[in-house]
Each structure stands twice: as C-alpha cells, then as structure tokens.
Design a protein around this nucleic acid. Structure first.
Lengths: 211, 211
DNA sequence: TTTGTAAATTAACACTGTTAAGTATATTTG
DNA sequence: CAAATATACTTAACAGTGTTAATTTACAAA
C-alpha cells in the first residue's frame, strides 16, 4: 500500500498517534517540556488540531498516566509467581521502587502530579481513581494474604496497606526529588546515593518482619 | 554611617519587600501562579527590577522555602516541652501532618518541588540542604532518645529516622495531592476525607508501639 | 455541480521567564 | 562648578506557553 493510504490510515486514529507523540516527547523531556506545539510538530499537524481530540493538556496528562499504569501492571506480573504472600509483598515493594527509579516521569504523572487526577473531577466528581484503586487493591489483597499466614495480625487490612503504600511512596518521592541524598549525615555518606533508599527499604522490611 | 551603608540598607529592604510580596502572592495562589510580573506589580516596580535582587525564579523559590522552614521550626517549638521521647516523636508526627495540611503550598515548596533544592546545586554542588538536614536532625535525635528508653532497639538510628520521615512524607503528599481519598474502598468511605490520613497515622503509631 | 459538513488551519489573546539596551538620577572626580 | 562615572531602574523585546474564535480546506451527499 502507498504512503498516501498509510498516511490516511494514520489520520484515522489520530487520537492514538497524538498520544504516542506525546509519550515519546514526554519520556525524553518530561511532562512540562512536552508542549502542545511540540506534540503537533511531532505528528506534523497544527497545534489546534490536538484540541479536536483532547479537551486540554490535563486530558493528555490523564491518558499518559494511564499508559504509565499499563507499564506498572506489566512489572507487577512477575509477582503472581511468588507463592508466599510476605515474599510477594517484599518483592512488590522492590518492583514499585524500581519502577519509580526507571520511570521517573511516569511515576510523577501517576502518583505526584495533580493534573491527571483533577481530570477525573471534571466530568464526574465521585468517579474514583480506577487505576490507582486497582493497584491499591493488589497491595491490599497481598496484605490480607499475609495476615492469613499470621503476619500483621494486630492491624486492620486497609489501614495497614495504606501505611505500606505511604511509606513506599514517601521513600520514592524523597529519592526522586533529591531530598534524600541532600540530608545524609556523615555516617551514611559512605553509602552511594541510591543506596540510602535501598538501605531505608531494608529497614522497612526489618520492621515488617518484627510485627 | 556613610550614605553607602544607607544605600546598602535600602537595597536589602527592597530585596526583603520583594520576598514579602512574593510570599503574599504565593500564600494566596501558590507558587506557579506567582509570576515575576505579579510580584513586580505588588511592589510597584518594573518586572526586571526583580532580577537585580534575585538571580532567577528558583532563587525566590529557595527564599520562600526558607521562610517555610521558619514556620515549621516555630510549630516544632512545642515539642521541646514534651519530656518523654516517644510521646515527643508521636507529637512530632502530628505537628508535621498539621503543618502540611495547613500550609500546603509551603509543604510543596519545602518537600516536593525540585526548584528550591536545585538552587543549592547551582553555586556549590556538595553544599547540602541545611534546612532539611536540621529538621531531619531533630527527628533523628528524638529517635535516638527513644532508643535510649528502649524503643526501636533493633534498628539503626539513621535508617529508622529516614523510614519515619518517608512514611510521614508519603502520607502527607498522598493526602495533599488527592490520591488518598480517591483510593478509599467501601469500608473506609464511611470515614471523612481527612480521616483516612489520620487513621493511617494512628496505624503507624500502633506499628511503632509494637517494635 | 452545488451544497453541507467535518477536519484542519491561521491568527490571535493573554500569559510566562528572561535578557539586552537605554534612561534618568545621584555620586565622584577633574 | 562642570564633566565623567556609577547606580538603579525601565522599556522593549525574545521565545516560548495553553487555549480559543474565526476561517479555510477537503470531501461526501444531493
């Protein structure tokens, strides 16, 4: 088939190709640097064309945030092969951390930035965050499985899962935003930069083992 | 007592009044909405005058971030009256949480945004984050005091303090950015929005009590 | 061929941070 | 005192941002 037809085909799912262009730029330079004009230039269309397919930039942010959750879900797949719930929980933490480090901008979009979540509120106020809720459920069910095996018996599942998520999220964001390394005291300065996070994670594991 | 000194004084005054104008706008509308032009309009000077006193916007971000730490230090003062280290640690968490909720934009500037910390790296690469390090030290010494009373004996002070900070930071940011409320399951929907955070914090306290 | 409609574009608005060049005022020097 | 200099500040502009109204182009149906 000719270039003409291929181009026509490409225009039919223009919405998708806008998203892919946005993703490409986003992964290279982050969300802030990904302007509507740059996306338009990437797909060789006028900037205003973007607005025929996406309401505004926050809708693009939301779409990219969904892409990010697909990647995270992919990474989480290996966890299904881990039988023991506590081992699975620990691995989950490690995968989450690795995802944050290797996909900084995605992590920012998924768990830090307000835009993608604000987008939800535009159409329907109480429509809760599907992607986040699903990921949290995965954590929650692992926590519950741990409890059935005797771990964390004293604690309520939901709150405990929330606590685990908070800890991991806090650790990841402090690391990603450079706050962790800038606070290290003399003793810890011997460790590498990323190792502060890993060392703190190991301490977290140690805490979980002592409950 | 020369005119030279008075000039210097005036110059410092203007630098300070720029900061105060920035602070006023910042507290009303957040950092993003606080443009150089708006600050200039506030003090009735030309926008470019700002640049005679501050290198760029990140330097203003850094100055505001320091203001934020003054406020936090003020809130932390009540902690000195709490003798028992574990009670002090718990109170510290509550004060930290309250500070985050009541000073959202300051919290963002102090612990989330990269700008104020990137500013450090401009002049001197290894000059570590003084304000953050000091606040962390306060947490660290409280953790150490707890350990002397028999708490958290199994854990290394630095890492444990880091873990505590991570948890509190994660909890605060998830709350502030609206991720916490958007994930609540049926059971927790009975609780108020802010109560999810408080409930998670109480679970954290429960965890600390069981170590 | 004309008409109607959908898709894409041009031009513009109201902003943003930032810089080079120019001005007006005050201080120092000849 | 007058001229040169230094300081403080402003004007105008650059290069960008998200977004919208108005307009043109492309294409199918009447």
């Amino acid at each position: 088939m000719g270039i003409r037809e291929r181009k026509q085909k490409h225009k039919e799912d223009l919405k998708e190709s806008i998203l892919q262009a946005a993703k490409k730029l986003f992964l290279k330079e982050g969300f802030e640097a990904t302007s509507i004009r740059k996306i338009a230039a990437e797909i060789e269309f006028s900037p205003t064309t973007i607005y025929l397919y996406y309401k505004d930039k926050t809708e693009i942010a939301h779409a990219l945030h969904q892409e990010g959750f697909k990647v995270l879900a992919e990474q989480f797949k290996v966890l299904t092969h881990i039988e023991h719930p506590f081992e699975r929980l620990k691995a989950m933490g490690r995968v989450y951390m690795q995802f944050a480090l290797e996909n900084r901008d995605f992590y920012e979009l998924m768990f830090v930035m307000k835009e993608p979540i604000d987008y939800l509120g535009q159409e329907c106020a109480d429509h809760h965050w599907e992607e986040g809720a699903q990921a949290f459920h995965q954590l929650l069910s692992t926590v519950k499985a741990c409890q059935e095996k005797g771990y964390f018996k004293k604690f309520e599942s939901e709150s405990f899962a929330m606590l685990v998520w908070s800890t991991m999220h806090g650790l990841c964001t402090l690391q990603l935003h450079g706050h962790l390394e800038k606070v290290v005291t003399n003793k810890q300065i011997l460790l590498g930069v990323e190792d502060v996070m890993n060392h703190t994670f190991e301490t977290f594991v140690q805490v979980l083992e002592n409950l």
